[in-house]
Write a protein that binds this DNA or RNA. Sequence first.
DNA 1: CCACCGGGAGAACCATCGTTCTTCGGACTG
DNA 2: CAGTCCGAAGAACGATGGTTCTCCCGGTGG
Lengths: 191, 191
Amino acid sequence: MDAETAELRVLETARTLFEERGVQAVGMDAIRTASGVSLKRLYQVFPSKDALVEAVLRRRDTELRQAIAAHGATHADTPRERILAVFDYLADWFAEPGFRGCAFINAYGEIGGVSESVSEIARTHKAAVREYFAALTAELGAPDPGYLADQLSILANGAMATAGISGSPEPAGQAREAARALLTAAVPDGG
Amino acid sequence: MDAETAELRVLETARTLFEERGVQAVGMDAIRTASGVSLKRLYQVFPSKDALVEAVLRRRDTELRQAIAAHGATHADTPRERILAVFDYLADWFAEPGFRGCAFINAYGEIGGVSESVSEIARTHKAAVREYFAALTAELGAPDPGYLADQLSILANGAMATAGISGSPEPAGQAREAARALLTAAVPDGG
DNA sequence: CCACCGGGAGAACCATCGTTCTTCGGACTG
DNA sequence: CAGTCCGAAGAACGATGGTTCTCCCGGTGG
């Protein structure tokens, strides 16, 4: 097996197992067994479990940001619609079988207290999503686009946390409606 | 040392350490050292670490619910004010040094995938807070008090997650403003 | 004073886990 | 066909952690 495909298989296997069981509950041996990549190769590609965890999170970061942007570009024409499309994306995501919440919120809760790099990755990811919102609220002409973006971020994060814990996808739609109300209040003649 | 005070000291020590570092990163030995309660006694009172974790979470559940209700009763006169007072309480909480997010969101992310009892405790806690909101939105005469309570829950959970990850207390105020907007939209002549 | 009980401190035990090492087989080169 | 290299598989190693056991001391009842 070639090193590049080994890396990919490890990243995808680890991602799945981490999301299912949490990071610390998954041993390197489980990743080796599930991915079919030998431990030797695994440690050639990722020098430590910490490095693997960070790589999984960074990969998830770009993947999720791209998915959100792509969903907005595909399903919406105006800034307002693109904002709401984020919550539609959440609805699809929450409905996936085995959904267990946001990887960044979970990883922060699990190892953020003990690993500054994991905290930093989570912080960066959440800040990036907020920036996505902020660009759209600015485009929309909101009076205080940053503040509105913060509120939309809170709604998105709240939907993820609530959906994970409750096991229901409904928070996506409820957060979407709340977002709609905030947008209407901020920009009554709406984009 | 008497068994009752030993139990209390262990519960409080464990709570602090769990919130600082996460559950799995804290060994029983660290709890014994920090609490000054011998391992023998510790295992007399809590038969296993799992049992201790659950006890800490259950205790935090009642404590947090009481604190929210007490803050509302003390600082607010109307249902609307009591709803907003929840977010004021969050603001105080987030500003405490060492704040690292909601114990239930964190515990769910860390061990919810592997422990059904922890998931269940988190779910129950979040449902109870939602019920608190629901009682107030009903009192307020909201057209769909349950739905509004769900949205307020999402805002509260989002504020906790966002404040934890970002390390800033600001999400409390931002969520409070969002809640105010939702309340105004739902009950324009407001309670 | 002496035997006993309970509790504290920490060693001991066993499993698990991250990481490294050994072994073995198979493929490629001459 | 022989020699060499590479990677897979899993054993081995050292550390850590949950749980139990041993030892010792202080207090208590006779």
